[in-house]
Design a protein around this nucleic acid. Structure first.
Lengths: 338, 338
DNA sequence: TTGTACGCGTTATCAC
DNA sequence: GTGATAACGCGTACAA
């Protein structure tokens, strides 16, 4: 009920001009000690704070950064947001989060909305639908307008911008290597369709690791799900059918699910069958048995992305110099392997 | 590269006035078909979109809503955000998420920042530190400025505003009732210190259920942790010491942890000891055995909060009529009870 | 030392 | 039918 006070209000009340007030509050040398004191005291009393919107309009800088992610319920993305928030807040930026919900349309709508002045730059990870359609026009428009963009995790070579990813291929490689070194022979891969950039890279790491250890690839040991949804029957069929002694899953949910299934069938983990999953989240940590997993270091990824973005936002030059930061995954060994 | 085009640019290019352009793009009747066509075509060609910041400044409406949560990595809060986003986006609002990280100072900073014009209203859940300090001045200031506020989950009677909570007491009551009806006698409670509003309510439901079934309260069966961090030794001590046949935990992490512990001690779940946890998240669903839990319906909570907020934001009247929506928790029965 | 004037991009009112 | 003007709140170059 006491609306925010403006420069104008102070000026009227103290019978000075608006610019005097403005300068006084910035402690400008131009203004006399006396008037400064008077104005500053008054401003503090009424708790004056400049209106962000007006400042944004004037500076053409919002101090907001827009984050577009496919999903907020997945642990990995929330850790990335944490990292972004941490760095951005420290630099005085707010974070505007929009969720595309894996939908191309929502991604487009959100980006267009935010691009109209609400933010100084974007950090985003592609929705699966976008990766499927391979339609990146909405993103190209944004970059053409000169709005800085950093992509993370789910990226595409079609867009020239800064990127932060983990070495997914290397992550899968490490996992398979671990299996082989502990004597496993029939190593399965549970993944999603190749249109997801990360799944593709992980599949490549899987193949490469087998090859480099002289094990030939058996395509029947690869289970490809159409999306990130767990499909009960597919799992059931795959695991009753195949004889495998190790399983690499592209996310922890697949892994937990599969572990459950084989345990119900009376197999022991890790003696009969070992498991490794991507995404080192709570599920991995608290699973029974706990799941060895490939940490994607989401928080670091977020910090790094925010750092890259803010650098671009605050720099003046027009030079188009983009870089890709590749973070190294780490294998977190737990009970599901040995 | 090609900076955003403005009304002024169009006006200059087409040699008409700015106001003509503005009206033409709003399809005003005042403007002739011809000029409208010309202007609209030009605008579409150059992909004109009004600048949100300028519109906000003019309307004193940002179409942004600020969300302040203690933690973004916890599943419950992300489901709430999902619900908020869903409803808010449908109504044309953006969601600005800030994380207080359970810190009083960050909560204050974030609120003050957003309150200076960046948002039309707040949705928030108190940080634990704020509940501990019982200092709500930053929130009072915001409401006194006339900024609408909806609190959810962790609320306080000290602030007059709309609220959405679940009936935590009832949730705990349901859980304990379930235990008793399946023949359990020595029912433990694993909770946090009382300053967390929800923990307090849950403890009350626990006591009430025992009492109403003629079981006397045994304080030694209550384990109080100082925070939401798992304290290994405290768990260890509690579960080797006490003889209990059922455990209610105020969050799923406590529950999973405790289940792990007793399983390693050779107890069978649910035959020897049953478990129920709050927060029906992924951990509950995928635990071994899966955890019976009290669903807090975060998404519905978020939608409801967003609905209440946007109603207040869009209504003109000054009447101070606040309401509290109490959602009913649901018991999701899984393998950890029977 | 203080005040005037202008611009950021938009919209609404009023005059021509 | 079209355009000029003021206003939203702020900051700053320039004038007094």
């Amino acid at each position: 009920m006491k609306p925010k006070i403006t420069l104008k209000d102070i000026a009227r009340e103290l019978e000075v001009s608006i610019s005097t007030v403005s300068k006084a509050l910035k402690n400008s040398e131009e203004i006399s000690r006396d008037t400064k004191d008077k104005i500053q005291a008054f401003a503090k009393l009424y708790n004056y704070k400049p209106n962000n919107i007006a400042v944004s309009l004037k500076n053409r800088r919002t101090k907001n950064i827009g984050v577009i992610i496919p999903d907020i319920v997945h642990h990995f993305f929330t850790t990335v947001i944490s990292g972004i928030e941490k760095y951005a807040n420290a630099k005085g930026y707010n974070v505007l989060v929009c969720v595309s919900n894996e939908s191309f349309d929502r991604e487009v709508i959100n980006m267009e909305l935010l691009a109209n002045g609400s933010i100084d730059g974007f950090i985003m990870s592609l929705s699966s639908e976008t990766q499927l359609k391979k339609d990146y026009n909405h993103i190209k428009e944004v970059t053409q307008q000169g709005i800085p963009l950093v992509m993370f995790d789910r990226v595409t070579p079609e867009i020239a911008c800064d990127k932060v990813v983990i070495d997914d291929e290397q992550g899968a490689f490490l996992a398979v290597k671990k299996f082989i070194e502990s004597g496993k022979k029939r190593i399965a891969l549970v993944t999603t369709d190749d249109y997801l950039s990360v799944s593709k890279a992980r599949a490549m790491g899987y193949e490469k690791a087998l090859k480099s250890h002289g094990i030939s690839l058996d395509p029947s040991l690869i289970l490809k799900l159409p999306s990130m949804e767990v499909e009960e029957e597919a799992f059931e069929a795959f695991f009753s059918d195949k004889k495998v002694d190790a399983v690499l899953c592209v996310n922890e949910i697949f892994a937990i699910h599969a572990m459950r299934l084989v345990q119900l069938k009376g197999k022991r983990i890790p003696e009969d069958i070992s498991f490794i999953g991507f995404t080192d989240g709570l599920l991995s940590k608290y699973a029974m048995p706990s799941l060895t997993s490939i940490a994607q270091h989401g928080e670091i990824m977020g910090e790094e992305a925010a750092k890259m973005l803010i650098e671009k936002v605050e720099i003046e030059t027009e030079e188009e110099q983009f870089s890709t930061t590749v973070l190294q995954p780490t294998l977190m060994e737990r009970e599901s392997t040995k």
